[in-house]
Design a protein around this nucleic acid. Structure first.
Lengths: 224, 224
DNA sequence: GCCCGGCTTTCACTGGATGAAAACGTGGGG
DNA sequence: CCCCACGTTTTCATCCAGTGAAAGCCGGGC
């Protein structure tokens, strides 16, 4: 792949996946191992297409075309397949319901249950929100504990980014609490693993367990 | 671009942008105009990379890599969220419809209404055109007032760059006028704020109001 | 002014890309 | 069962798009 034109184009795109969201030509060349003129040609074609766009200072960032495609991408069946073993293990260990959710139309789409959850009121949703998926389809109050103030929510999202763990205590349904952790692929959050438990059955290791499961699934993704 | 490898890869990806989320090889070849073996090679490299994935029945769909990239793409992390308060204020102050538009496939995609507007005939579109977004998907006459001569349009675009304000007087729909101003991020225009009014309504403060709103949103973007 | 780093253009060479043709697989109609 | 039709995959001789070293260009620092 490295010896093909397509491969070179892809490597340029990959250069943006993990790192800062804006790169200069030289930096792209360094990251991809491509000679500068070659990187320039790749980048130019990407700009014409709309996959990259040029910032005012001459550096590059991912463009609208990539965003549009990302939004158009359906949720991968393969993801559920990869995740199922870990989800079963989670349920065995913690109890309750384990699921994996991807962003879809401003909601968190649960691949196991098929449910669509609000982004602002569930642990899985908050994980997705915290990592740039959004905006939410609707922000409404589901229980007395639902967070609706943008400020409070943003503070939580910042914390979620720091800790890699989100929680929801009866913010969506009374008597239900959930924990969720991000599934990473190439440094980007592509899904959220969550467990949902009745408040009567709290389990203090749920957070760590969810994080572990997310890690395992992320590694499975990388290996696939 | 059509004559380059990169262009062919892009056209394959584009084939998925508008249509159904799963395509068969022959269908991809048909949509892109590529010979089948060529399409096959493109598709294969995309699959290896992760930009496409193969469904159980042998058809193809957009893959996790594309999703991850789309998620990693900066800027509209809640561009609409950030803009909504300002847009509401605009409507309250000026009336009519306020919206924020980003370039998408040669059109101006309005994030509030979801509408796609032509770049050459609307205020929001002209703002995007004036700052390097384009080319337009199509330049056609919508009303007797639509500008189609490239010269006249370019003169206007230059003026828009100078003044930071664009207008459209019944160039898209009769009885409708709109004003738009650029939203800047790192000095680059990433979106356009616009208000659309019936010609019967007063509008003398619309220009300044739109510009102010765009400034506020730009500052919110920088802070995020 | 001079230098230095990064961006862009040029150009002769070459190896990856190309696509017609043929082989392969599969399903279904007679 | 055979044969046909359709979609996919492989092959291979041809050739042109892609390559990258080198040189030119621009701007900013000293």
């Amino acid at each position: 792949m490295a010896g093909s034109v397509a491969g070179r184009v892809f490597s340029v795109l990959d250069a943006f996946a993990g790192g800062p969201d804006t790169l200069r030509l030289t930096e792209i060349a360094r990251r991809t191992g491509l000679p500068v003129p070659t990187a320039l040609r790749m980048v130019r074609e990407l700009v014409v297409w709309g996959g990259l766009e040029r910032a005012a200072d001459g550096s590059y960032r991912l463009g609208t075309r990539i965003r549009a495609l990302g939004a158009a991408a359906p949720c991968p069946r393969g993801l559920l397949d990869l995740a199922l073993p870990s989800l079963r293990a989670l349920t065995t260990r913690i109890g309750g319901h384990a699921d994996i959710a991807v962003p879809s139309d401003g909601t968190a789409l649960c691949l196991v249950s098929g449910a669509r959850l609000p982004l602002h009121a569930t642990a899985a949703g908050k994980v997705l929100l915290a990592h740039g998926h959004g905006p939410p389809a609707a922000v409404r109050r589901h229980t007395p504990y639902t967070l609706t103030a943008p400020g409070a929510l943003n503070t939580q999202l910042a914390r979620i980014r720091e800790t890699g763990l989100a929680a929801s205590h009866e913010e969506y349904r009374l008597g239900e609490l959930s924990y969720a952790a991000p599934v990473l692929r190439d440094g980007a959050t592509v899904a959220a693993v969550s467990v949902t438990l009745p408040t009567s059955m709290p389990y203090d290791r749920a957070g760590a367990a969810v994080r572990e499961a997310a890690g395992v699934i992320g590694r499975a993704l990388a290996g696939a």
